[in-house]
């Protein structure tokens, strides 16, 4: 009795709220093929007994591409990581590496110089060199070596050191 009353109330409410909709025939407009429901239980039972897996795998674009996209992303990320770790030309050079290169360069320079000059002359030249008077040629005018070897001027020595980009501090050390 209560249920019937409720349904009547709901119908009246629908009429008020949607008069056009409530006027539409509620009968099911769809049909099924002839004898469909007679045959269906047998088909279903047949499938159940042949143990058909209940989950069908559908090969949609998304199901195919999603794993591919994940793999592609992993490969790209890996490649970028390798590039930045090992190949990157913009990678900042580490301080130790600079020091080592500079050391090797300076040591080579000293060996070259020692073939031309004797060690004490080089040391003296370096020790007397200072930023304030590095361009001053006076100190070399008094140099015995230069006096004895007129082929080399002070400018030759300075230019040689400058061309070789010699770090004066390393030489003195």
């Amino acid at each position: 009795m209560n249920n019937e009353k409720k349904i009547v109330n709901e119908d009246e409410e629908l009429k008020k709220m949607a008069p056009v909709l409530s006027g539409v025939n509620k009968e099911n407009p769809f049909t099924a093929p002839k004898d469909y429901f007679e045959a269906l239980p047998q088909i279903i039972m047949g499938k159940c007994q042949s143990n058909v897996p209940d989950k069908k795998w559908t090969w949609g674009i998304f199901t195919v591409y999603k794993p591919v996209m994940v793999i592609a992303t992993v490969i790209v990320v890996f490649a970028i990581a390798i590039f930045f770790l090992f190949v990157n030309p913009w990678r900042p050079v580490q301080k130790n590496e600079t020091d080592y290169n500079s050391f090797v360069q300076d040591e080579g320079m000293i060996n070259d110089l020692s073939d031309i000059f004797d060690e004490s002359t080089i040391i003296e030249a370096v020790l007397t060199e200072s930023p304030e008077n590095s361009s001053d040629s006076a100190i070399f005018e008094k140099d015995d070596f230069l006096m004895e070897n007129p082929y080399y001027t002070k400018d030759d020595l300075i230019n040689y050191l400058l061309d070789a980009n010699t770090d004066m501090d390393n030489i003195t050390q």
Binding site: N25, P29, F30, T31, A32, P33
Partner: peptide, 9 residues
């Protein structure tokens, strides 16, 4: 398999 009228469609 649709037998409805126009308004049902």
């Amino acid at each position: 398999y649709f037998n409805g009228d126009q308004i049902q469609m």
